[in-house]
Design a protein around this nucleic acid. Structure first.
Lengths: 279, 279
DNA sequence: GAAAGTCAAGAGCAGTGCTCACATTTGTTG
DNA sequence: CAACAAATGTGAGCACTGCTCTTGACTTTC
């Protein structure tokens, strides 16, 4: 195992290291192209090597195997999605919770429609022989749910998250899971709102997956944008976000000190890394 | 092209035809095993041939190519799912709309967890080189949404579907799509409830996909059954189904004659086959 | 019995992931 | 500058895949 330069040396990178990093970047870039063109399961190291102008066995000097390249592409895609979501959310004032929610959902959908193969790699059926290494992908892989939960939590603390009308009950086993998540992420939202948030999360990706994966028959929805906008509005409602012009202070906002601050980590799935570790 | 025995001869099947049909059944059965074990993208005709005790080229007498086998498996899986959903729904009285909805969702989830690779084939990322032939898969592929929509429509006609509280608006382009769907399926539900139904549909599969595809990190939810039950209840609410003990007749039920009957076909996606054609 | 139809076998082509022995380049050091 | 050693590229090779085609054997039908 020659090159596992985790914890990059404190020294400035040698020319060799720089060249090596550039080659790996090239491989990932070419891999992205092949991924976009032919899908994850058809990703071929030999084809990448050809495009790189090198014999097939040479790429094994830079990438351990096909799985490793898939992992790199996975992390790359997670981070690209995370960056775009973060940017879209940050473009709106922090108090416009409904607007930010809509921006988050739209950003995910926009990226998914632009990079369907990447979306399929992240959220589709698992690639046959491949299992993503949790210790490297959990960080980038939780950025969206992190952003969503931070958004809902902020709305709750500001008193802008309505309690669900007469929703589903939360039994003790589920409450235990939710408590663990709440503590791990440093949230304040109570059980039922947190459970609603999880449902909204899965529902958002369900709607996007159906569109990206072509589950709607061809021609069924001529206006997919409107359909998604409708779904987003309904999901905002489901989450408890007041989309109507204010309704100022159904419940008094929560101020710092009363509740734990939003933690920087660890990730949504339990005992893991902080987001952004594997970059 | 020797054997495209569509429209099977009206004659009783010859021994040859019987043997041939049995061999194809064997191939599909072995294909299902390989699918369950290794996933759709790793399905290998040669491996199936080995298990069949025959040389690889021999299976091409029965199955045109790998795509064809995938299509057969796709139809098989769609019908198995459809059968289980239909049975689960029919096990409850026709007036127990909320119960039937819960049974429908639970049946889908149960099947998906039992046959994750099959579920991935139907609802996951598309298999690389493969495009499902709409004329053969649309019928079986629309059975679940058909059952769901029939359920919601029945509830509406019985006056048991509440109008969404203050949900998202439905603009003209989306209304046109919804009108086409409503006419095609012979439904009575108005736009906003129909749009809610579509959201509930995608949300149901979103929740199941996250669970089956392992999007929840390992160990995040120790009680996935409770989580799904909660989601189901919230989705029933979202669809407008009254889960509380009746609330008899917020709106008077609609009786036959006032509105079109539920059509037998065509499928949900527009101009297609009636369900069950490709069996 | 002969003709027609069906089927299995095996060779072969092009592609894949991956390994290994060998050759070449390249940065560093005596 | 020369020498060395590490890093990198090469090509052969193995086992696998989908798929085609020819050949020979078998079965049904005339």
């Amino acid at each position: 195992m020659p090159q596992t330069a985790s914890h990059p040396s404190p020294k400035p990178p040698t020319p060799r290291e720089r060249a090596r990093a550039r080659t790996i970047e090239d491989i990932v870039r070419l891999g992205r192209e092949h991924l976009a063109l032919h899908g994850a399961a058809a990703l071929s190291l030999r084809a990448v090597a050809r495009d790189l102008g090198v014999v097939s066995s040479a790429v094994y000097r830079y990438v351990e195997n096909r799985e490793e390249l898939l992992t790199l592409l996975l992390i790359d895609a997670y981070n690209e999605l995370g960056d775009e979501v973060d940017a879209a959310v940050a473009a709106l004032p922090a108090t416009d919770f409904a607007g930010r929610f809509s921006a988050l959902g739209s950003a995910v959908r926009r990226w998914a429609l632009r990079e369907p193969a990447g979306y399929g790699l992240l959220f589709g059926s698992p690639v046959p022989g491949y299992r993503a290494p949790a210790e490297r992908t959990t960080g980038p892989g939780t950025r969206v749910i992190y952003a969503l939960m931070a958004l809902l939590d902020g709305a709750y603390r500001a008193g802008r998250l309505a309690a669900p009308g007469d929703g589903a009950a939360v039994g003790p086993p589920l409450a235990a899971d939710l408590a663990r998540i709440r503590d791990g992420m440093g949230l304040a939202v109570p059980d039922r709102l947190l459970a609603r948030g999880a449902l909204v999360w899965t529902s958002l990706f369900g709607a996007i997956s159906f569109e990206v994966f072509g589950q709607y028959g061809a021609g069924t929805f001529a206006a997919p944008d409107e359909l998604f906008a409708h779904h987003l509005a309904a999901l905002a409602d489901l989450a408890g976000l007041r989309t109507a012009a204010d309704g100022a202070g159904e419940r008094p906002p929560i101020y710092p000190g009363q509740l734990p601050r939003l933690a920087a980590g660890p990730g949504f799935p339990s005992p893991l890394l902080s987001p952004g570790d594997a970059r």
